[in-house]
Design a protein around this nucleic acid. Structure first.
Length: 266
DNA sequence: GCCATATGGAAAG
DNA sequence: TTTCCCTATGGCA
């Protein structure tokens, strides 16, 4: 259940384990078996992350496209174990193994197909892409910024946690229409995403709480941070805001859980 | 054992 | 706008 920073880390990990090597590719679960047989015992060239999508290049122009969706998960091991659970894709050498479970998408595609898919992915803060197109669209849109931030053609790699946190850090109400934002506000949001997601790639967690608020954040109960980082509002509904002590709110926005502080974000 | 839940997105209506 | 898909886990009986 990753946002973009995790996918970029996974690309790096795959390259470390398999880059330039002939690998075994299989599908213990079976649903990727036919495609796996095509690239089995061929050279793993390189994995690339674009937003939340992962492309893995093999020799002879074969590419695996992977999107984890809500449930997808990679496991990286230093040995090749007996399969446990439903493993859609397994890549291995004698001393390294990567197992993919529950992806939304895992398919063999051609370079032209990859090109088409990449063209649909918007600017990615982690890739340091130019957000100019996104800025123009956001500042002209009547759609709430809380919805726009989840649009992968505008903010590739941003998910529900970064959405909630970056809006809190900029004190912006998620319901604010894109066109009600100033250029300065958009740029602040984008720059904050670049910084937060860079830190996320380094640490593998989403940490958004500023040092001056850490004492309060650290005082909360352990079960509050199941996603693995220190955050202001994500999944903190009903708890005290670290800034103003009022209650963090939760609602459903276009089918996704939205968290914000009604006091701080107006 | 059963049920709810999850950091997502595409397809169907 | 709703439905559907993919899998594991934690809380509860």
């Amino acid at each position: 259940m990753p946002e973009g920073h995790v996918v970029h880390r996974q690309a790096r990990e795959l390259n470390t384990l398999f880059g330039g090597q002939v690998v075994q590719v299989s599908s213990p679960q079976g649903r990727f078996a036919q495609s796996a047989s095509v690239i089995n015992h061929t050279t793993f060239i390189k994995a690339h992350a674009f937003g939340k999508r992962l492309f893995v290049n093999f020799e002879q122009g074969n590419v695996i496209h992977i999107h984890l969706g809500l449930y997808g998960k990679w496991a990286f091991l230093n040995h090749v174990p007996e399969p446990v659970g439903l493993i859609r894709l397994q890549i291995s050498t004698p001393d390294a193994c990567a197992q993919l479970r529950g992806p939304n998408a895992c398919a063999l595609i051609s370079p032209p197909e990859m090109k088409i898919m990449k063209a649909k992915i918007g600017p990615d803060p982690i890739r340091k892409d130019d957000p100019g197109i996104s800025r123009t669209k956001v500042l002209a849109s009547a759609t709430p910024i809380g919805v726009l931030l989840m649009n992968q053609t505008l903010f590739a790699g941003v998910g529900n946690i970064y959405r909630a946190e970056v809006l809190f850090r900029s004190r912006i109400d998620p319901q604010t229409p894109g066109k009600a934002l100033t250029r300065r506000q958009f740029d602040a949001l984008w720059d904050d995403l670049v910084e937060l997601m860079k830190v996320g790639v380094r640490s593998g967690r989403i940490d958004t709480v500023l040092p001056q608020h850490m004492p309060k954040a650290m005082g909360r109960s352990p079960r509050e941070d199941r996603h693995g980082g220190e955050v202001y509002v994500y999944r903190r509904a009903g708890l005290e805001c670290f800034m103003c002590s009022s209650e963090i709110a939760e609602s459903d926005l276009r089918g996704r859980n939205l968290f914000w502080c009604p006091q701080c974000q107006q």
